[in-house]
């Protein structure tokens, strides 16, 4: 029964909830960015109004575009973003609610690492197929960013797997459920905590780079190359791309929360909320998760977006490939040393 629900209803639910929440977070993001600049800012529901408008507008397909790639790319981006969100969030909530199910071990960090690349690749192929020189430049830059961000992300993944295999020998070490049930900070000495902070620092760069936000939005630099990748998209295709962007940012932020702050309500307080014979702990967990993703979104995306300017593509590549890789590698070394020392 639960398998039937999971396979049929859950993807539809995550699709709708992911799009709604992603757009809502975009609205909150714009509002906070406006407060930073002492403006009033648009209403929180502004992205929904934008989507409504874009859905009603004419969708122009350029004459020299490869039509099927151009049309397929936004839908692919949206569906793969939702897939990413499913693999990140559903095992976590299954773990929190205590349901024992095969999906608990379904997604691991390696799957996420690969699925994370699909929306970007879809948009890149859409950009190349649209036949505009601006879109081609934007697509090239996006490919460069994708390649550069992969390395620190892979190092972080391996660090978590190493740590998990030391903490819990019998658990699958790449699984998000293992990471969620053994929060990294709980079992580490001072050296490991320093290493964890370095990984968190590298995530401060990885999340904006993966979700193509300032300072890493070279691919769609609107003032410089006329929105780059999205230059030829209009109407409902643009709406799909915007939704995919919202869902992908949401997925990345959820990944950050689950990797670094996976504590559920019971882990934090040691209590379970019960009333009228029902257990409300899961509801408290959901609320706590929302609070955490909004806080991380605010700190990692909105704040960085407002206080920084766009890097040049060469600077971005250098920062991601050298600085951030070195930071995450030293985090790996510190955490490895820490587990080594505590094993002695």
């Amino acid at each position: 029964m639960i398998t039937l629900i999971l396979t049929l209803l859950m993807p539809a639910f995550v699709l709708v909830a992911g799009i709604v929440l992603g757009l809502l977070m975009k609205g909150v993001d714009r509002k906070f960015a406006a407060y930073f600049q002492s403006r009033i800012g648009p209403p929180v529901l502004q992205p929904f109004y934008d989507m409504g408008k874009l859905m009603m507008k004419q969708s122009i397909i350029p004459e020299n575009a490869v039509t099927w790639i151009f049309k397929g790319a936004p839908v692919t981006a949206l569906s793969s973003s939702v897939l990413l969100l499913i693999y990140i969030v559903v095992p976590y909530f299954l773990y929190l609610s205590g349901v024992n199910h095969f999906f608990l071990q379904a997604g691991d960090l390696i799957v996420i690492l690969y699925v994370l690349a699909i929306p970007t690749v879809a948009l890149v192929s859409g950009g190349f197929s649209s036949g505009s020189p601006y879109a081609a430049i934007g697509a090239q830059r996006e490919v460069v960013l994708l390649m550069c961000v992969e390395l620190p992300l892979a190092v972080t993944t391996i660090t978590f797997a190493t740590k998990m295999s030391a903490v819990c020998e019998s658990c699958p070490s790449f699984s998000l459920t293992t990471i969620a049930s053994h929060p990294v900070w709980n079992t580490m000495g001072p050296m490991g905590i320093l290493g964890g902070m370095m990984l968190l620092l590298s995530f401060v760069f990885i999340v904006p780079a993966e979700s193509a936000k300032i300072p890493f939005d070279q691919g769609e630099a609107e003032t410089e190359i006329a929105e780059g990748l999205l230059a030829e998209y209009s109407g409902k295709y643009l709406a799909f791309i915007q939704m995919a962007d919202g869902v992908k940012s949401l997925a990345l932020v959820s990944l950050t929360v689950i990797l670094f702050f996976p504590h559920g309500f019971t882990d934090l307080t040691g209590l379970r909320i019960t009333g009228g014979g029902y257990d409300f702990t899961l509801a408290a967990d959901v609320v706590l998760f929302f609070v955490k993703i909004f806080a991380v979104y605010f700190l990692l995306i909105t704040t960085v977006r407002v206080i920084m300017a766009r890097f040049k593509i060469s600077q971005a590549a250098k920062i991601l490939l050298l600085t951030i890789t070195v930071v995450s590698l030293s985090g790996y070394m510190l955490i490895y040393l820490d587990t080594f020392i505590s094993a002695l």
């Binding site: 507008k57 006329a226 999205l230 209009s234």
Partner: peptide, 9 residues
């Protein structure tokens, strides 16, 4: 303000 006429109203 948007950067390309395709997005504009």
């Amino acid at each position: 303000l948007v950067g390309t006429p395709r997005h504009a109203d």
